[in-house]
């Protein structure tokens, strides 16, 4: 009973229950073929691509900000890699460095605007989202005369970033797991993580306590934009080509994933494990539906319902977390 109580108080409780509920739903109502679902690569690949972006976006949301410019940073990353190393034939290292640099640059702009102006980060990153779409499209047309560029990556780059493990599973799955472990360490074990929570809880008090909130905000924005351009880079290397379109679906998919994962929209609450499971849940709903006999057109309805249920659960658990376990012994007042 006590174990259950402390489980429900954790930020990722809602995500874990959502995952179980979705699987149960697919088993009972969808006649899902579980063995095929587990062995399938489609949803794992989908989750990994999404998850690499969702974790830093989740961290940003714990810190009280949001970044939707990632929707443009994924094509920006893949196009930069493809244009530099494919169209101009420069070494792949140059293309990769270019892709990551553009992520750092846009993240820096987002971060600086967020700390220097009073404009909410949703609007700032909406601006850089639309702006970067323009830059990517016109840049691509100007430089290559095309909106799609092919790329031939050398073996080592393919191996590291664009390999299909066992012919089906993208290597980015390993990157996702590595990202999750690193960020979990940072958020839950390091001082830096405590600062992110404090900043999201109350920015003014955090600053008064000596936390460099401005620098922290900028770093978080750089991390989210760069992780998006990293995903774009991996996709270009995997598919041997890049297009200017695409990436927009990532905006809402990341937000749904981290919200299901237990983040509080106003900041100050959430966990990396929650983001990880939230992403997994999202991927199983949207991709796992192909393994059921439910018409796949329904998947968005399921996602919407799941989102609302998960948020309602998370709210309840948060209230629980604020209270104290009733089973705890009553202390005699001194």
């Amino acid at each position: 009973m006590k174990i259950l109580g402390s489980f429900l108080r954790r930020p990722e409780a809602g995500a874990i229950l959502s995952l179980l509920a979705v699987i149960a739903f697919y088993v009972f109502f969808g006649g899902v073929h579980l063995e095929r679902l587990v062995k399938a690569a489609s949803w794992v690949n989908f989750a990994a691509n999404l998850g690499v972006v969702a974790i830093p976006v989740g961290l940003l949301m714990i810190g009280g900000e949001i970044d939707i410019s990632i929707g443009a940073m994924i094509p920006a990353g893949s196009m930069t890699t493809a244009i530099l190393s494919g169209y101009y034939g420069l070494p792949i290292e140059v293309g990769m460095l270019g892709a990551l640099s553009i992520g750092v640059l846009v993240g820096l702009v987002n971060g600086l605007l967020a700390v220097r102006t009073a404009v909410p980060s949703l609007i700032i990153t909406l601006g850089t989202l639309v702006g970067m779409q323009g830059v990517v499209l016109s840049g691509s047309v100007l430089l290559t005369g095309n909106t799609s560029v092919s790329l031939e990556a050398p073996y080592w780059a393919k191996f590291m970033f664009g390999q299909l493990m066992g012919g089906t599973h993208q290597v980015i799955i390993l990157w996702w797991i590595a990202f999750a472990l690193i960020f979990a360490f940072v958020l839950h074990k390091s001082r830096f993580g405590n600062w992110i929570y404090a900043m999201g809880g109350d920015k003014k008090s955090a600053r008064n306590a000596g936390i460099p909130t401005e620098r922290l905000t900028i770093i978080l924005f750089i991390l989210s934009a760069t992780s998006a351009s990293f995903v774009g880079m991996c996709q270009a290397i995997l598919f041997n080509s890049a297009q200017v379109s695409g990436g927009m679906s990532y905006i809402f998919n990341t937000i749904v994933s981290v919200v299901v994962g237990g983040v509080l929209l106003t900041g100050g609450f959430g966990s990396v494990l929650g983001f990880f499971i939230g992403t997994l849940t999202f991927a199983i709903v949207s991709q796992g539906i192909y393994f059921t006999n439910i018409d796949r057109n329904w998947s968005n309805l399921i996602i919407g319902t799941m989102l609302l249920l998960a948020v309602a659960m998370n709210e309840t658990f948060r209230i629980l977390a604020l209270g104290y376990p009733a089973v705890k012994k009553k202390e005699v007042r001194a």
């Binding site: 390091s190 001082r191 405590n194 929570y197 404090a198 936390i211 100050g268 604020l322």
Partner: peptide, 25 residues
Amino acid sequence: TFPLMSIGRSFFVGVEPTKGWGPFK
């Protein structure tokens, strides 16, 4: 001021005690 932080964590905001070394503090 940090309602969703633990007592220990909020007590030490900005001056967290650490153990370990280097990047693994």
